[in-house]
Design a protein around this nucleic acid. Structure first.
Lengths: 244, 244
DNA sequence: CGTACAATTGAGAATCCTCAAGAGCAGTGG
DNA sequence: CCACTGCTCTTGAGGATTCTCAATTGTACG
């Protein structure tokens, strides 16, 4: 995706309804903006942070997208999730002040840095901010649970369909099209996230394409038949996914 | 497991180092104890809460153990995780004040109820409590990430070995034996959590048993060769699992 | 002792992975 | 403009792991 990288700080940021400022008074948002550091620019394949590194800041995606993963000792890695604009990265580090995964830019992206110590202080001053932090953390947990369900009990085609549906819903929440979008991740990233091989992902996309449910052209995905996609994800009822 | 269900409140609770009071001053713990409701007793198969229910309290395991899961529309369910004494349940509800999974007792168990509204207020008064909440939430997230890795890129025997190792470490943290323990969950629960069938779990346990790495007698597990078990989980180096 | 439930074990089937080759696309240089 | 390289993605065939179905054993409890 190609969201215009605006340099706006929190009060003028079009993502404020999705991000930390949600639910805050206007003056509280201004207060928050004072602790948010200048945006950092990352290119494709730049690391935002590494597993094991000390965590001083949380990061909010301003534009672009990211992939977080845990690298095994033997070179294998497991993708934990993808982050789109408005989402907060680094929450796993709240346990020990060290990142428990690595995060890398999938395209040219910008992030806002939020120093952890100052965020904590501000949470004590602004109850609404503390509430919002709790909501964000709860969302991260619920989203991880969705991923666990995905990996635990889903066939290949269900996984791919669920992946597309999750993205669709998240793009929609950002005000983008929910039916046509440009994947910022490679097939390898998708496969790794879904616990499949790239060949299997490719085959399932081809199958969905053959059924006319989606149209695939490289990384451009067009969803032609949303109900059918939902039926694959949840064969019985019209399911509601927690936006992951 | 059979932890003696002591009626002690937070200041005298032997779990305080693992639970919410960790890192608090003695008088702060007393303050916390005033908002923690009387313990609730649950029998095997009793629901602590249901998916979709409004969340008014978080729950800390006082004794016994729990299983949380997401039930699909079509009767299938995916186990999200297991909870042992000192661990906090219901964190996924912080997003929308509704539980996004169901939780059920695996044996006779007790929980402490912590009203959410009063916990939030107290977090504003006691910075250390807010810190500890953040740590607990960060731990939950890191633990979920471990589960994602487990389900994404592990063979059946690696999953079973990892499961045993995770339990071993958590029991050790509770002061119980890390090599001999009594599973409170059925094979069905383990299989469901690991994304396998009960037959496969049974076969992998038999295989580990045949290799002399563990001894299985119904639900009693004895780990005879911890290094070998670790080697199965991570073939290269001596890995450190985030206690999940 | 008999029933109900949990767990184990076996044989065949299905899904997904591995290995391998080919197609599509972008960038470089003659 | 076209060949060449490098990378990503697709497609095919065979093989391995895990699932499904089925029967048996084991344990708890009335």
């Amino acid at each position: 995706m190609e969201p215009t990288p605006i340099k706006a700080s929190c009060p003028d940021c079009r993502l404020s309804e999705l991000c930390l400022p949600y639910g805050l008074q206007r003056d509280e948002v201004k207060q928050l903006a004072t602790i948010v550091k200048n945006q950092r620019l990352l290119q494709f394949d730049d690391f935002l942070y590494l597993l094991g590194e000390e965590c001083r800041c949380l990061y909010a995606v301003k534009s672009g997208s990211f992939r977080s993963f845990i690298a095994n000792g033997d070179g294998l890695e497991q993708t934990i999730g993808f982050y789109l604009p408005g989402e907060i990265m680094g929450l796993d580090a709240l346990q020990h002040d060290r990142f428990s995964c690595s995060t890398i830019a999938l395209e040219t992206s910008t992030v806002c840095e939020v120093p952890l110590s100052r965020l904590n202080s501000l949470c004590n001053e602004i109850p609404g901010l503390q509430m919002q932090m709790m909501r964000i953390l709860g969302k991260e947990i619920a989203s991880d649970h969705d991923t666990i369900v995905l990996l635990g009990h889903r066939t290949a085609i269900e996984r791919v369909a669920t992946f597309l549906l999750m993205l669709s819903q998240r793009y929609a929440a950002l005000g983008f099209s929910s039916t046509t979008f440009n994947l910022s991740m490679r097939r390898q990233d998708i496969a790794n996230f879904l616990g499949l091989t790239i060949e299997t992902v490719s085959r399932q996309l081809a199958e969905l394409s053959k059924q006319g449910i989606i149209t695939v052209k490289q990384r451009i995905i067009k969803i032609n038949d949303l109900p059918s996609l939902k039926t694959i994800v949840n064969p019985c009822a019209g399911q509601q996914l927690t936006t992951a």
